[in-house]
Amino acid sequence: MIEVKNISKAFGEKQVLKDVSCLFERGKTNLIIGASGSGKSVLIKCIVGLHEVDKGEILYDNRDFKSMDIVKRREIRRELGMLFQASALFDSLTVEQNVMFPLIMYSGMSKSEMLDRVNFCLKRVNLVNANHLYPAELSGGMQKRVGIARAIALNPKYLFCDEPNSGLDPQTSILIDNLIQEITHEYDITTIVVTHDMNSVMEIGEKIFFIYKGELWWKGDKNSILETDNKEIGEFVYASHIMKLLKSKH
C-alpha cells in the first residue's frame, strides 16, 4: 500500500501538481490516468523520489519516504521496480545482463542462481531465446518485456509502470497490460500504472485516479468511470469514436 497525502510540486513558476492525495492498494493495479502533460509522470516520479515534492507526504506501508535520507531511501528503492516510458534498458548490456543487473547489485546470489532467476523472469514475461540480444535489436514490445523482467527481478513489493504500452500496437498493449495485472495478483504487490490509454483503463482499471491539470479530479474504477457525469472525465473517456459508439449503445 502506498499513500500519497496532499503533495504539490512546482518547477520554477510552473505548478505541476496541486495538493494530490491518493491511496494505492496492494494486490491491485492502480491506474493514474489523464491527458498528456497533466502531470502523471511527475506524480509517479515524485512518489519514487526522482523528484522532490514541495509539500505533502508519501508513505510506503506507513513508512514516511519523504523524511528519509538517501541511505534509507535506497533501502526502500530496493523493494521497488519500475518500468519506464521508453523502457530505459541499459544500451551497453544484453537482455540477460540487463535483468541480472539488479541481482548483481543487491541479491548476493551466485552466478548460476542469478542466471536461473533471470531465465525465470524472462520466461514469466514470455521472452525466450533473446538472452544475448542488445536492446537496440529488440522490438518495442520486447523492450517493455525486458523492462518488466528487470523490474521484477528482485521480487519487488511495489511496481511502477509509466505508460507501459506507449508505442505498442493494440494487441501487444493488451498483452503487456495483462502481464502487469497477472504479476500484481500473483505476487500480491502494489502496482501503479500511468496511462492515457482507454484500452488499458478498461482492461486493468481496478482503481483509477484521474489527474486533470495537476489536480486529482476524480477517482473510481473501470465501471464507475463509464457512469460518472464529470465533464472533464467524459471528455477524456469519450475522446475516441469507438468509446462514443459504446456510450450510445449503453
Partner: peptide
C-alpha cells in the same frame, strides 16, 4: 547524456544506485 534523456539514469537511481 543519452543515458539521462532515455531515463537510464533514473532507472539506476530507482534501483538505489
Amino acid at each position: 547524456g543519452t543515458m539521462r534523456v532515455t531515463e537510464q539514469i533514473d532507472a539506476l537511481e530507482i534501483m538505489g544506485i
